[in-house]
Design a protein around this nucleic acid. Structure first.
Lengths: 374, 374
DNA sequence: TTGTACATCTTGTACGTACAAATTCGCAAG
DNA sequence: CTTGCGAATTTGTACGTACAAGATGTACAA
């Protein structure tokens, strides 16, 4: 075979620097691999070939090759030859740790979701690494940068931070995609990024709950929605869908937008709440936590659920059946969501073309917080 | 310097097998390091020395040494010599992941504990790996074996599985100690194993709660304790302490031992519960979960708390203030416990002689579930 | 068509030589 | 006592040779 070209290339490289010949050879081979002149799995030039090509001794060639072998780039087989390693197999597919990033650790949904994730991943031999953003974009950034820099995980399961407002870390998600690290969002997601998500159908949930209130005779229906969370936006959209379907007016003054912090201290929004509630017979609550707190606040004002106002929410958590008034609520899949997310992430790891998106169907559990309005 | 001895040793090794000379040399040097003949940091025999000692060429010696260098056991410095690497520094101290192993993910204590752990470790640049035993010794075994075999974590924070009954995995804890992987128990611990723990003082908690009942005039005091959990045993011991101090009789027929599964479905033990409760005016409840369920069960029987019976518990969780009857309870440190465990584990990583044991002080929050008995 | 033997090519082991480059240490000069 | 120089020591690079051992394909025989 003709070997004119390598000669030239070799000489040029050789001239460039005053570094040892064997290191120049290492560099040249690395370049060949990087520029795909040498494909993974393919057989490399034999030692004698390289010796002749570069005009060095076979020992020098062996020195260079042993460096590359220790780096894992190539593989030598006695009697057969030297081969380029498939790097992808050597890296991503050998990994057995998955990173789970969530916002807060709330008391009811998260523990069961993480348990679902861990159960599935553990069975498949993966370990689970966990980090919390505390719903801070700054911390989300640090965590993602850490994951990217360490470059050790097989995939990421991520609960997005403040998905309802523009995220300053989108470039990091781009970087993750560029590196082909499988990632899947849970609960919430960014519609603009084409990243798979596993969640309930939040828009349908908003619609289902509102429809239920309508079917029970309510016409003046307000709502409490989360502003900094994509789920809040979608549930609101579903609420609007249902109201429009029924030909009912949407009264902006009966909608209260809260953020994650507000939810934890709902009593601080007492005046606003009472203002929104006044004149409504039914109310959509973003989740059980909101509904539960609201019932307590209203009770102190002498407003009783469901006698004075009906309300329905989403999550069907422990809170739904813990208080005096058992909540009508849309169940959250909890560990099933975690399991599904983990299963789909594993499929994405095995097959990068697999689309891991899954939305759970919606149903509604009727209890005591909604009554018929005549 | 005399070099008679190495000659003999070398020859013997050389005779043993029909493997390449350079591999025999590798083996010999590895043995020297393992048997501490060559100490970390110390200078190795020079290439020429080894060449003479083993009667091989310098190239063969270099081959052997390069193998060991790639394994990270030794370090070569041109002009100076070859040195034995300090393995501990190269391994354990460079690690930045901590494994957290817990039993179940309950709804209130665990999420805040893990949050405390994660906050502290994240700030110090560590990542957190998590696994759940589901309170099964078999799964605890698999998880620990996995941790040991992978040999990647800087330390372990562990909630013991069924610490109240003999653990079949003690040999794994021995192995972990042998490998000098720092480990710390949380909540519960094995007194026989000298492994540090961070927990509340459970015996004091049992004593404090029982004393409170006694101080409120109760004399016939029963208790519900967890059998499969060391914390249950200790709280019982504290209960006994307090009863003895006050000169009160302990009536075995008023003590109910439950296991972790029973707690989740307390209504299944209804008959036993009613039997134990009968004749008592005060009751120690293992935790809020037990107390909360018990109040519901008793209510259905027409027995009211605190009018008909007083009860106090441990944890002071969300459940304590969620029901109709607000619970008198001993607070669990929750995230503080996680933070303390993480801080002490980090100290143990930096200083292997540090004893990470810490027990939180006990106080009691008085609410509505205990009334004065005349 | 199948199986065996052989030539040939490949990497592996092993020895030897020579000189380069970095470090160390002793010795002499200041 | 300090500084500087040079010799000695140590590892690094580079070449060469020789033979061993494993893999592969071809020619030939059954």
């Amino acid at each position: 075979m003709g070997d004119g070209l390598p000669f030239g290339a070799a000489l040029i490289v050789n001239m460039e620097k005053n570094s040892p010949k064997y290191l120049e050879l290492v560099k040249w081979i690395q370049q060949q691999i990087e520029t795909k002149e040498l494909q993974p799995g393919q057989k490399m030039y034999s030692e004698n070939k390289l010796k002749d090509m570069f005009g060095v001794s076979r020992q020098t060639v062996r020195h260079a090759i042993s460096v590359l072998e220790n780096e894992g780039l190539i593989r030598r087989v006695q009697g057969s030859g030297t081969y380029i390693n498939d790097n992808r197999l050597a890296n991503l597919e050998k990994r057995t740790r998955v990173s789970v990033v969530t916002t807060y650790v709330d008391g009811y949904i998260f523990p069961r979701t993480i348990q679902g994730i861990e159960n599935v991943l553990f069975e498949q031999g993966y370990s689970v690494q966990i980090a919390f953003t505390n719903n801070l974009n700054s911390r989300e950034r640090t965590i993602l940068e850490d994951i990217i820099n360490r470059d050790e995980v097989a995939g990421i399961i991520m609960e997005t931070t403040k998905s309802g407002i523009p995220n300053p870390n989108l470039h990091l998600y781009q970087e993750i995609r560029k590196r082909r690290i499988p990632i899947i969002f849970i609960n919430s997601y960014y519609p603009l990024l084409k990243i798979p998500h596993v969640s309930i159908n939040d828009r349908m949930a908003g619609r289902r709950v509102t429809r239920h209130l309508i079917s029970m005779g309510h016409k003046k229906i307000g709502g409490i929605f989360k502003l900094d969370d994509g789920q809040g936006h979608l549930r609101y959209a579903g609420y609007v869908d249902a109201m429009n379907e029924a030909g009912l007016d949407i009264d902006d003054t009966k909608i209260l937008w809260v953020d994650t912090e507000d939810v934890k201290h709902l009593e601080k929004s007492r005046e606003k709440l009472l203002d929104r509630v006044a004149g409504c017979t039914g109310l959509f609550c973003y989740n059980d936590e909101v509904a539960f707190s609201l019932i307590e606040i209203l009770k102190k004002e002498g407003i009783h659920v469901p006698e004075d106002i009906s309300l329905a929410s989403v999550d069907d958590s422990e809170l739904a059946v813990l208080g005096d008034v058992q909540l009508t609520s849309v169940p959250h899949p909890m560990e099933h969501l975690g399991e599904k997310a983990a299963e789909n992430l594993l499929k994405m790891i095995k097959d990068p073309t697999f689309d891991g998106t899954y939305e759970f169907d919606i149903n509604i559990i009727q209890r005591d917080s909604v009554r018929k309005f005549k």
